[in-house]
Design a protein around this nucleic acid. Structure first.
Length: 574
DNA sequence: GCCGTTTTCGGCCCGACTGTTTTCAGTCG
């Protein structure tokens, strides 16, 4: 079996859990968790990195963990993990995941009552045995009762676009509370992650009680689990957890920084402060009792000798070192996009006419819009054959003649068939301004077959952009396995450009692959894949992922003005 | 287990809230 980075990360996380349950040194446990995080964030596969020496170079990974990575890659197992699994019942891990249960209580449950999993815990709660266990009073018992009941439904992350629907009204509601001067949604939402696990809110107010009382009356709140004077946590009606902090304005920037995270980023910045003899908390940056900064994030970063780091980069993946060198990338912005290179009309499976799509592009300030309706192929409703595509091209010519500030480009989204050939004849594709190719079937092929299929498609003469390269659907299906390094190299050298599809449930390439593509020298197309006029706004979502991938204006095909774009597209049609 | 322009040993981010205690441990973010 091939061990991927995710498998190695999962092994380290499991080891961390098992060590925690055994009551081992917490810093040792933290080292395993950090290693899992580092491995998960790697741009390249560990297997391609070399050997033990190369692993040892990774941050947070020393001799011991480097050897364990090598062992996992070579054998698919880690003896240390196997040993731990024999010592700790498997069910204890699921207990550790329950809210309210940490390593100490899990150990108490196991040693005191032989509870080895959620089922046992339910039993111990039901027959009253748990009440006799020291440290498990009535409050904790009822909390655990709720937790065991909720465990079956399970915690889940929601798409960013779903979180927005809850975060925006909540922000607006809190902004109306008396004494509140500012409200920001922080956390992974502010960092622009594709999925969001909870809503973190930072409220600026002189006194904390009023906003938290107001929250208790909020319509969309399901329950409040904990509520103090500056901090509360609860659950929204859709099941999304909520955390709120209220701080005065002299601390607001420090609090925003702290709650925006990521946790690893914040810890690293705090360590940096510590090295300088300072202390950073959500209340500010302090030397002794003296507050050096805290009102703004910019002030906190500046006082530590750092550039302000855009939230999308705060993943402890090198952004802190770059900020020290004042070498952060100038991230792409929505306003940099001159056009959109993937959109559908009612000619295939879109909702709106060519004319309406053009008007929507104009109102959004786009200078060009590529019309890329589907080719005729099984599974795609109303795909265009050569004759209908020819009629659409005439229609585009006529419309272009009436448009002054927008140019419609003639394109198609053509299926990559299982053998790597395309679902439309070269003679037809040749007449287009650009050809978007994509996989819409046979997601279950092996990595070798899927890779070969796409590499063959990239050898075709008329191929401009590879759309949604992994075919993933958030909450639907994971991306198919692909040797991305080979696809990237082939696309770059051809050239064919790689798409960051902006559909909120796709976001494909994702942030990490966008970074790899950029580092590998590929040009990217940030495309809406709009199936209606409104969906042109999805470009915001694509830009957010691109920013998380350290993507700059120079890395983006559709940040180029039309004449440059045309020249680049001509290179793809030969 | 990692790491080092204060250290190769002795540190390792910082604080809020809760519950069950009698001064604090555990959990969480």
């Amino acid at each position: 079996m091939t061990m991927h980075n995710e498998d190695v990360a999962a092994a380290f996380e499991e080891m961390a859990d098992l060590l925690a349950i055994r009551g081992e040194n917490s810093f040792r446990i933290r080292a395993y968790r950090r290693a899992a995080q580092v491995v998960r964030g790697l741009a390249r596969q560990l297997a391609d990195l070399g050997g033990t020496e190369a692993f040892d170079e990774l941050p947070g990974i020393g001799t011991d963990l480097a050897a364990k990575i090598a062992e996992l890659l070579e054998t698919g197992h880690a003896r240390a993990l196997e040993k731990l699994r024999k010592q700790v019942p498997a069910g204890l891990r699921e207990l550790l995941a329950l809210p309210g249960l940490g390593p100490v209580r899990v150990r108490a449950l196991y040693s005191g009552l032989n509870v080895e999993g959620i089922e046992d815990l339910r039993g111990a709660l039901a027959d009253g045995r748990l009440a006799e266990l020291r440290g498990f009073g009535p409050k904790i018992r009822s909390q655990l009762l709720a937790a065991t009941a909720a465990a079956s439904s399970g915690p889940r992350r929601v798409a960013f676009s779903v979180a927005t629907q809850y975060a925006r009204p909540l922000k607006a509601y809190l902004e109306r509370v008396a004494g509140v001067t500012r409200v920001e949604i922080a956390g992974s939402y502010r960092r622009g992650r594709d999925t969001v696990g909870d809503i973190d809110v930072v409220v600026c107010a002189a006194e904390g009680a009023a906003p938290i009382q107001a929250l208790e009356r909020y319509d969309d709140l399901q329950s409040l689990n904990a509520a103090g004077t500056t901090k509360a946590s609860g659950v929204l009606r859709n099941g999304l957890p909520l955390d709120i902090r209220v701080l005065p304005k002299e601390s607001f920037g420090a609090a925003l920084h702290y709650l925006t995270g990521s946790r690893d980023h914040v810890v690293q910045v705090r360590r940096l402060a510590q090295k300088k003899g300072l202390k950073l908390s959500e209340y500010g940056l302090f030397r002794g009792a003296k507050r050096l900064a805290g009102a703004t994030e910019e002030g906190v970063y500046a006082a530590l000798g750092l550039q302000w780091i855009p939230p999308e980069l705060r993943e402890n993946l090198g952004e802190i070192a770059a900020a020290q060198r004042r070498a952060l990338p100038m991230l792409i912005e929505r306003a940099d996009l001159q056009g959109d290179l993937h959109a559908h009309t009612s000619a295939s499976d879109g909702n709106d006419s060519l004319k309406k799509m053009a008007a929507a592009a104009q109102t959004r300030g786009l200078r060009y819009l590529a019309v890329t309706d589907h080719s005729k192929y099984l599974g795609i409703t109303r795909g265009l054959d050569a004759a209908r595509l020819a009629r659409q091209m005439d229609e585009i010519d006529k419309l272009n003649a009436t448009l002054s500030d927008l140019t419609l480009l003639k394109g198609a989204e053509v299926d990559i068939l299982e053998d790597g050939s395309l679902a439309m004849a070269d003679a037809v594709l040749k007449r287009l301004d650009l050809v978007v190719i994509a996989v819409h079937s046979q997601f279950g092929l092996s990595e070798a077959k899927q890779t070969r299929r796409i590499l063959r498609a990239l050898e075709r003469p008329y191929v401009s952009i590879l759309a949604h390269p992994f075919g993933r659907l958030l909450g639907g299906r994971p991306g198919y396995p692909l040797d991305f390094e080979r696809v990237l190299a082939a696309a770059r050298d051809r050239p064919c450009y790689l798409e960051i599809n902006s559909q909120p449930t796709r976001l494909d390439l994702d942030d990490a692959y966008a970074k790899r593509a950029r580092d590998g020298g590929a040009l990217l197309s940030i495309a809406s894949d709009a199936h209606s006029a409104d969906q042109l706004d999805y470009l915001d979502d694509g830009v957010r992922q691109a920013r998380r991938g350290w993507v700059t204006k120079d890395d983006v095909l559709n940040a180029r003005p039309l004449h440059e774009l045309r020249a680049l597209l001509r290179d793809t049609l030969r």
